[in-house]
Structures are given as structure tokens and as C-alpha cells.
Amino acid sequence: MMKFRNVLALVAVLAAINSSSAEERSIVLASTTSVEASGLLPIILPQFTARTGIRVNVVAQGTGKALDTARRGDADLLLVHDPDAEQQFMDEGHGSTRRQIAWNDFIIVGPAADPAHVKGGSDAVAALRAIAALQAPFISRGDNSGTNAAELRLWRIAGQTPDALNKEKWYRDIGGGMGQALNAASAMDAYTLSDRGTWLSFNNKGSLVVAIEGDPRLLNRYDVIELNPQKHAGAKLAAAKLFADWLVSSEGQQAIGGYQVNGQKLFNPSAQSPK
């Protein structure tokens, strides 16, 4: 009887060890909706898991919400794209290391009929002024994401404040992700700001076309941020570091740069030469 009990105890210990090991070999990545909606993560995460055995569970949110998720300790790593909000996160002491992994750009898309007559230009601010002057429909994500922050920065340069915009009927704040904003713009023949990656992988374009591109103010950088162990102590930070290191490694950068939709590269690897 004693031997049987010893065997049962050993089985229980081994089960606990295996369960703990499996738990430690997974991490939670708080990431932007644009990185997931573009289709990048489903392509590169299996490559990392095959290399390391570490599973990456993604929580896709706007950058603001992703940063808050990490602040609460509900994520092990961040992949975001709002430089100002990221800097605040680092200044608060929540992050230990911040590295750029890739860039693409934002674009303004709108109906092919182009009521604001902005199509073909490269001045995003002038385009927004024309849209506001005509009161042409404009869709805002309104979700405190990196894309939403970039949009509002451009509106401020164009002389419009968020409070003033939200009083306008032509300006629609949907409080949703990039795919939702593009769907709304397609349904309403409206303009919107999109990251290029999500736009290229978006299948419900309808009459939407690229109206504005090439403005240096439309540069869109993606950073991976490791958490500060002094504020966010946990066994998973080591596994999170492995993923962050992989993203900036030659293998990770090749995986990012190799992702294409219809022959077009969605992200430009930039770990070695940050923009």
C-alpha cells in the first residue's frame, strides 16, 4: 500500500512539473490590431514556436489598451506602434528595453469618386483640411490605438481638435479596430486613415482607393517592448525576452520581411537600421 501511495505521489509531482513547464513555455503578447489584422502574426509565430517550443498567445488591442494591459501585469511583452505613448510607458518605468522591429506607413483611403479632390496627393494635412472644408464623411477608429493617435496628430496640425471634430456629423468615431474602420468607410464611401499592412490584406475594399501616400508624417514604426522585472516580476519574462530577441534576429527579420500579400511586402524589417 505504501509503495502504491509513493507511486501516486510521484505521478502527481511529475504532473505538476509538466503543467508548470507548459505554463512557463507560453507567453502573452499584447499587440496592436493592425499587426494581427494584417496577417503577420499568424505567419511568424509558428516559426518562433517551432524554434523554441514557446507558444505566444496574442491579445490584439489598440496600442493604448495594449500598454494598459501590460501596466496591469496581464501581458509579458508588447508589440506596439505609438512612439509618444510608448515613451510615456518607458518613462513610468514599466518597460526595460524598447526596440524597433519594422516599419510601414499610414495612408489615407477614400471613395474612388473622391469628393474632396485629394486623390494622388502626398500631403496628408492638406488632404484633411480639404475633407473638413467639404465636410466629407471621415471614419475615425477612436480606440486610443497607435493609428488613432497618428490620425489625431495630423488633425491637430490641420487645425482641428478632437473635441471640435467629435461635434461634427461628418466625422464618425466608431471606437473599433482597423478592419472595422475600413468596413465602415467602405459602406459609407468615407475617408479614413489606415496602416498599409491592414489595407493590403483587407478584402472588402468596395469603392475605396488609396488617396494620400508618401507624406513623411505617415511613417509607421513598430516596436517590441520588454517589461521591467522590478515592476513586473515573473518567470515568463525570460521567455518573452527570447521572443523579443528572435524578432530582431536575422531569422525573425527575414520572417517579417518575407510576408507578402498579392506580391506586396507589408512590413519592412528595420531592427538593424531603425527609422
Rank of each mutant, 00 (worst) to 15 (best):
V7I: 15
V7E: 03
V13P: 03
L14P: 05
A16E: 00
S21M: 13
S21T: 13
I27Y: 02
V28F: 00
V28N: 02
T33Y: 02
V35R: 02
I43Q: 10
L45K: 08
P46I: 10
F48Y: 11
F48W: 07
G53C: 12
I54V: 15
V56L: 10
G64R: 02
T69E: 01
A70C: 04
R71C: 01
G73W: 03
A75I: 05
D84S: 06
D84N: 06
A85F: 04
E86Q: 12
E86V: 08
E86R: 03
Q88P: 00
G95W: 01
I101L: 07
A102P: 01
V109R: 03
G110I: 07
P111D: 11
A112M: 02
A113Q: 14
H117Q: 15
K119Y: 00
G120M: 03
S122W: 00
S122D: 04
A130T: 08
I131M: 14
I131W: 11
N144H: 13
E151N: 10
L154T: 09
W155A: 05
I157D: 11
Q160W: 09
T161G: 07
N166C: 11
K167I: 06
E168Q: 15
K169T: 08
W170L: 12
Y171D: 06
G177A: 14
G179I: 13
G179K: 15
N183Y: 04
N183P: 00
S186V: 04
Y191K: 08
L193G: 02
S201Y: 03
G206H: 10
A211Q: 01
D215M: 09
L218S: 11
L218Q: 15
A235D: 11
L237W: 09
K241F: 02
F243N: 08
Q253F: 05
F267V: 12
P274Q: 15
